[in-house]
Every structure is written in C-alpha cells, then in structure tokens.
Design a protein around this nucleic acid. Structure first.
Lengths: 222, 222
DNA sequence: CCCGTGAAGATTGTCAACAATCCGGAGATG
DNA sequence: CATCTCCGGATTGTTGACAATCTTCACGGG
C-alpha cells in the first residue's frame, strides 16, 4: 500500500474527549451556568455512559480551570467575578499579542493578513446588517483565526480555554448592547498593523482592543 | 465563631490531584522519559490505588499536553522535537513578558523587583560556587517567582506546564555546559528593567533572555 | 426561640471484574 | 521463501457495585 495517498489518520476519539468537548460547549453557552453543580450521575445518564468516562472528562475541565472541584462535595462550573474577567483579558492580551507578532513576522504575513481581512469583512457585514449574534460569532472566529495562523500548538491550547471563558462572560451579559462599529474598526486596525509589519503599532492596537473589550464587559456587568 | 482568625481551609486534596502532581514531577525529571508508555496497571500498583483515579490523573496530563493519548493503544509521555522546544519558548516569552509587565506596572513593583533581585543573587552565588545544579534550580525559582508576583492565576497555570516542559528539555540534555555568568547577567538585566519601569527595555530584555536560552538548548540538542 | 444531636438520603470516591481492542508469533498455504 | 490467517496474551475502555463523606431535616433539651 502506498503511503503517499494523502490519507489522514482516522480521527477516532476517546469517549472522554467527546464528553469534554460537549461539556465545554455547555459551559460556554450557559447551558451549564456559572456556579452550577455538575451531578455525575445525572450527566452520565444524559450522555448514556457510566460515571467513569464522565469523571475523566471532568478532570480535564478541572485542569483547564473551567470547573472547580470540592472534595466529597462535587464539581461546580467556575464563576467569573470582575477580577477573573480582568485576568482573562490580561492573558488573552499576552497570547494574542504573541500570536499576532508571530504572524506579522512569519513567512506568510501577507496571506495571514488577507485571511484576517476576510474575517473582519464578515464582521463588518454582520454589523451593517445589525445582526449582533453573527457579529459576535465573527468576532470569535477572527481571534481564533489569528491564533491559528501563528501555528503554535501551545498558544492555541491556551487560547481555546480563554475563548470559552470569554464567551461565558458574553453569555452571562446577553442582551447588553455594544457599539458594533467600534468593534469592527478595532479589528481592522489590528489587521492593517499586521500587514504593515509595524511591531509597536501592532502591539498597541491589540492592547487597545483588549482594553476596550474589557471595559465594555466590565461596564456592562455592573 | 469569628471568621477573621486567619485560618486557611484544610488543604485536603483529591487522590487524582496527588497522583497528577507526582506524575508531572516524574515527567519533569526524566523518571518517566519522553516517549515512554505509561502502563495503567503498573502505575496504579505503584501508587497503591486502582486504575480509576490513575486514569483521571492521566486525563489531566493529557489536557495539559504533557501526555499523548492513543486510543486503545495507551498513553505516552510527549516527545519534544526542536519545533516543540521553539514553541515552548515562544509561549514562555508571551507569558513571562505579560507577567513582568504586570509586575513592573503594578502597585508593588519595588517589592517585586527586590524579591527578584534576591533570587538573582542566589543564582549568582550558585554560579560563583560552580554548582550548576543549584544554578538551574535558582533559575527556575526566579521565573516562577516572576510569574507569581504578577498574581494572575491563568498566567500561573500556563507557566507551570511550560516549566515542566522546559525542565524536560534540560533533563534530556543533562551534562551539557552553559556559561553560568551569561545566565546570571541576563536575569539581573530583567530585574533592573522591572525596577526602572522602562517598558520597552523590559520587553527587550525578556525576549533576549528567552532567545539566548532557546539558542543554548537548540545548540546543545544537536 | 435557639442550638446541639442524630439519622436518612443523596452524592462522591474507589474498586474489581468484564468487554473490546491491539500486538506478536505460530502455523498453514501458495 | 514469502504471505496470509488465526490465535493467545496483554493492555485499554467501560461498567456496576460498594464504601465513605457530606447535606438536610426532624427532634429534643435548654
């Protein structure tokens, strides 16, 4: 059998991986609200598995910091107070700045900028249509793309968790209004900073964007 | 009952937490060498527990990225090639830069700098004594302290894993010689940059230190 | 009315056994 | 001799049951 057929390994995945992903989504979108206790028996029944694989999935989420474990008490979805939200954005700034710089200084900065420009265009479109839900999705897609383009498995892993936490905040504040045009403009400025290769400008734009996003969240949460 | 007695919660910990920590140390110091398969039965017997808690600990390490899981095959200690090493340092740069800036711009920058100066002094002492083992420990202690001073739970969590991976590299290259004085000088320059509050200088010093450390590792590994 | 006591119920922590899968080698076949 | 098939041993994946712990609530005493 030839080995150069371009076939990929079959993406078989462990049960605990699948459960982890579903639980993570539940946390992200508020199906499992912050502070809620996660009953092993109930969830295991819902997934149609025994408690073993479910507990393994839980330990992953604990390690990720999305779930808090109290011995002999149970597992609880992590709650995010203002200090936590600030920490999320501090860490996001660190990760995304590194990612953006890697993209800007990498071999394919131009292609990267182009793909991000496309993402920003989707955001602008959603903003123009007044579709705030789609705008939020496009926003997340932009930041995911940014970190993916850096090609760093570690930045990606950390960022994945941070996006879940960010979305948790947004979900909790659902219905709050943010000015769409501001958001779109901030993302465009980031793209152009990447394209221009001006490092100081790039760092400044990302920091400003994160600061603005954080301010929007904090302002809305009180 | 008064609540202001300064008592801390009893640090009871789950079995899987304890096992996770021990396995992590094993990976860090090469007791569990890179690429090795981790037999559930053997390890469970060694820890004196059943396979349940041990598997939970494993899932944590998988989530952390220290262990790779192959379905129906087993769990293996992650191997670090040159690309991985570069990624570790890319991420370390991101995390530690953010931490250092947080310290430098925070309320207690002076105290922070002082504590780091102490750590650097320990390094200098070890270097002067020619004790390379103690120098390496002091080096790690410096970076841990730096991130701790930032007071960010997320930066701390990510950094913890990165330090394990860094130590894995060092362990694999045990016996290689690095110029002690260079290392000491680099750390001192970081401390002084924090103390001075010069942001650009601080970022530059950390990047230079990381680049140097990475070069030392890569050079030694081939 | 307030507080300590104790038992019931529910939930988590742990285990040992069973099922499914994979790897290696012996044997048959061309 | 090469190759395919099949089987045994070993390892992982999953389960259901049991033990330990915590919470709740009713009860009785002060």
């Amino acid at each position: 059998m030839s080995a150069a057929s371009g076939f990929q390994p079959v993406p078989r995945e462990s049960t605990s991986s699948l459960i982890t992903r579903q639980l993570r989504e539940g946390i992200m979108y508020g199906t499992l609200p912050a502070g809620a206790q996660l009953s092993e028996a109930a969830l295991a029944a819902e997934f149609g598995v025994s408690r073993g694989p479910l507990r393994e999935a839980m330990q992953r989420l604990v390690q990720e910091g999305l779930v808090r474990s109290e011995l002999n008490r149970g597992l609880f979805v992590k709650e995010l107070d203002e200090a936590e939200i600030r920490d999320i954005y501090l860490t996001r700034t660190a990760i995304e700045t590194a990612a953006a710089r890697a993209v800007a200084h990498g071999d394919s900065a131009a292609q990267g900028a182009e793909r991000l420009r496309t993402r920003a265009a989707v955001m602008a479109e959603a903003a123009a249509a007044g579709d705030l839900h789609r705008l939020a999705d496009a926003d997340f897609a932009f930041h995911e793309e940014l970190v993916n383009l850096a090609g760093s498995p570690r930045l990606h892993r950390v960022h994945e968790t941070l996006m879940v936490e960010t979305r948790m905040c947004m979900t909790a504040l659902q219905g709050t209004y943010f000015d769409p045009d501001d958001q779109v403009a901030e993302h465009s400025r980031i793209v152009e900073a990447i394209a221009s290769g001006d490092d100081a400008e790039l760092v400044a734009q990302i920091e400003e964007h994160m600061q603005e996003a954080l301010d929007r969240l904090v302002r809305a949460s009180r």
